[in-house]
Design a protein around this nucleic acid. Sequence first.
RNA 1: GCCGCGGUGGCGGAAUGGUAUACGCGACGGUCUCAAACACCGUUGUUCGCAAGGACUUGAGGGUUCGAGUCCCUCCCGCGGCACCA
Length: 776
Amino acid sequence: MAYNHKQLEKKWQEKWEKEEPWKAEDQSTKPKFYCLVEFPYPSGAGLHVGHPRSYSALDAVVRKRRMEGFNVLYPIGWDAFGLPTENYAIKTGRKPQEITNENTDTFRRQLKALGLSFDWSREVNTTDPAYYKWTQWMFLEFFKAGLAYKAKTMINWCPKDKIGLANEEVVQGCCERCGTTVEKREKEQWMIAITKYADRLIDDLKTVNYLPKIAKQQEDWIGRSEGAEINFEIRNPKSETNPKEESAKKHFVKVFTTRPDTIDGATFVVISPELAKTWMDIGWQASDEVRAYVDSALKREEADRTAEGKEKTGVDAGIKAINPFNQEEVAVWVADYVLGHYGTGAIMAVPQHDERDREFADAFGLPIVDRPLIAFDEAVAKVGGVKTTKYKLRDWVFSRQRYWGEPIPLVHCEEHGWVAVPESELPVVLPPVEKYEPTDNGESPLAEIAEFVNTQCPTCGGPAKRETDTMPNWAGSSWYFLRYIDPQNDQQFASAEKLKHWMPIDLYNGGMEHTTLHLLYSRFWNKFLFDKGLVPTSEPYARRHSHGLVMAEDGTKMSKSKGNVINPDEIVEQYGADALRTYIMFMGPFEEPVPWSTNGLIGVRRFLDKVMTMSEKIGGGPNVELARVMAKTIKKIGDDIEAMKFNTAIAQLMICVNAMQDAGAVSSELFASFLKVLFPFAPHIASELWEKTGYTTLLDTESWPTYDPALIVDDVVTLAVQVAGKLRGTIQVAPTAEQTEVEPPARAEENVAKWLEGQEVKKVVYVPGRMINFVI
RNA sequence: GCCGCGGUGGCGGAAUGGUAUACGCGACGGUCUCAAACACCGUUGUUCGCAAGGACUUGAGGGUUCGAGUCCCUCCCGCGGCACCA
């Protein structure tokens, strides 16, 4: 029976709004459960169906938790700083904050229309000065601890637009807006020393429960390698003519290798163009050919240098080094397949053992020798090497030359250098500006605001200038889970007591696209705060799970340009929030990408209509068969929600309703249990029917149903009877029946008897409740 | 190239080494209707057979096992991540 979802859902959403059954308690005798979903970036396009996929599924988890007696914290907020808003502001001349407010209003309305059980009283917004005051405060903690430092890095520069571009704005080496090829420019940027935490970020993965693929990606991203640094002496040409000078003039090239055991086969040394440049800067008289190669290599983008299938290039440096293991003289080359920023920027090439070295040796006719391996430690010791660990992870570039981000709360004084803005002056609020474009020299538009820039040095009171760079939008999202715990606190980012009550997060769900950066940054950020004694746990997330993308019906990515985007508003309008929530969990395994199907959605809506129909058929005597189905349903839904297998949980709900329908009627007790297990998925209709069946309580406050384990076990099961491993018939037996009880009827089964006729049974395999196999 | 995950009906997908194809969609047949939609009932892996029943079937090919979608080996294809990190 089709129901009026609009009226019904509105009624319950209003009721929930009024009664607030989802408010988390900061003090409670109940066990706590902190469930986190990645807060959305409130884009102008509104909610995508991908958002409800994660939010509905975790909503099902927390609804079950509440019914199990947990004090649940399930918060939501807005990660609202970012480029799309800023670009939209530039285009329309409107204020980013205004745009953000409109977008968050839309998102809030859309999320509420889905009946998600967020504790709305804890909403946070990263662009709210009361929020970013603490983002700035935490940055200053990094600064004071010496973990935030300024360094020269390369930024993406669009020569036509004359602005620095964020990595996200560079598409295949070109400016996203005008298509001009992006250049590299040197710029001083604030950096945060995340690499100091590299080991702990890897090692502590053992202490948390992440999906294996997530832990693996974190580990790979950090990229730890154990190896050794070994000096290769540079043969000083002068030493041949004047041996006395030899010891005084010794020069070395230091290489990093993870395979010191192969050193006997090292037939040449390769240094990166970056290292070659450094050598030239300190006086190396390189040939013109070398200079030309280094110049061109340094100009090119790294992406270009490391492009797929690229032929190896390089040039003979014209100098020799000594392999410290066997004292053989080897050539030194400069080649861009050796990276300047990793290891020592120089390698020993062992073409026999390394494919890249092999390729280079083949290309330039360098020697390849096959020598036996030496024990790792022995090799390192013999050549006087030093065991070292290197990481792929690089320090976090924390500056953006942009408007719509948290101002970095530092001032520069001629006398005192970089000085922290005192805590009493936080937050450093983003001032209004006329134009949101970056300036011609690539600085943030804040650099144009004299009143903002010119200030006093907090140390000496003398004239000083504010930093005009802003933070990346990873900043606000690195600690938002802490603010949910105590969102109104204006003395601290959150009280120690409340943090102790809620942390760590019991379950954190998000997309795989945030597995490396956001997850790593926020773990690092939390660890730093932990070291400062500001948060109670070293790891913020006890368990991390991820969801797959919702694809378009044709299996491709949904995109505005293709016009295949599903708008949640329209679905809610036409089929209802319960149908959308339930369908989106039913469509496939939670972790996998799944294509959208409007027909599938309609099927789920039909299921909800059937539930409505059954509510009219309550009555009849006890029905053991139905009681068994109900018991199995309660068990399966419970198990599946824990395992995040929402699709099979919903399949079981359907099986259960089909059984009720076949029975023609259902007792009020069984139906009540059914409504409780339906509730996490379709809370509106479950609540409505709960009320309709005469209950006055909210389902939210009811307890999760239990079942009689005896009902899970059937008295009679269908046993498969196989002859030589092939199914030849079935018989009805008790699941616990002994083999001696089962064998005679199995042999007697008409078709089985036929197959056994004239055969010698060599062996009988019996699995109670499953099958019996006569091996012939 | 390396790492990870996957390949099951017409489609989305189920399946602790034990009756493959649950559940849903679609399709077909029927009931209701003047008719259609909705709803409900039935059928639906392929194939041989009137039927009883048989043969085949989880990307391909081998293997282990009484028994393999599931475990092992070789290969093909798709998706995701990393990509000259020494």
